[in-house]
Amino acid sequence: MNMVVCVKRVPDTSESEVHIDASGKDIDKSRLSFGINECDNYAVEEAIQIKERLEGNVTVISLGGKDSDEVIRMALAKGGDDAIRLEDDAFAGGDALAVAKALAGAVKGLEYDIVFTGALTDDDGYAAVPVALAELLGVPHATYVKKVEILEPGKKAKVGRELEGGLMEFLEIDMPCVLGIQTGINEPRYASFKGIKQAAKKEIAVKSAADLGLDAADIGEAGSWAVLEQFTPPVVGEMAEILEGEPDETAAKLAGILKEKGLV
């Protein structure tokens, strides 16, 4: 089984205050720590587990600058075989479709049975890349995948999709295919020290848009259907009331409102 895993380096905003930067089109990332996108971490693990069961090859792909090498190397340390990083100024400002075009350009040059991506990213959260990637490659896809069972290596898999309310939808899917992996599908491993040392020696192939045969007008911001205009904090609307004061005061006000409206 030949597998490809797409990973993204994202900022960790879970324990930090987020501020919009001067451009108004991004957040200030200067004091944030970065790591692999959470879903992608599970996607890496799923690919490696399948490789360990059925043998095969895992290629790690990431779109990003040199900083992305750290998440690529960690995926290699855990058991990935090869790596490609897509770097080109022309990729900047792309929406999910443009990202998928870049990834598809890289995947097309490989033999693959399954392309794994995360179901969505922690930063943009469009959850559109796996779907767009599958369409561009002309192969079937499944998203929010929380179970993968290989029925016939290279031919057919059974996948479980996580639906609302804890329901699972099972479907059979032909390979090659794209699977958008949901968190919780497995227990991502820690890289072993030997793995980390070996990964440090592996080569990461860096490819530009031209290397992939992509036209600069068709990728990045130029090739996007959606272009980010501006970030703004939520505006206080007519129906919104912001409670101010010490925690005990605000809690008392909130309790008063809930009671008054008969909500508790």
Partner: peptide
């Protein structure tokens, strides 16, 4: 730290 050392530390 080298990339390798950063990876060890992170892990």
């Amino acid at each position: 730290l080298s990339d390798e050392q950063k990876a060890l530390k992170q892990t």
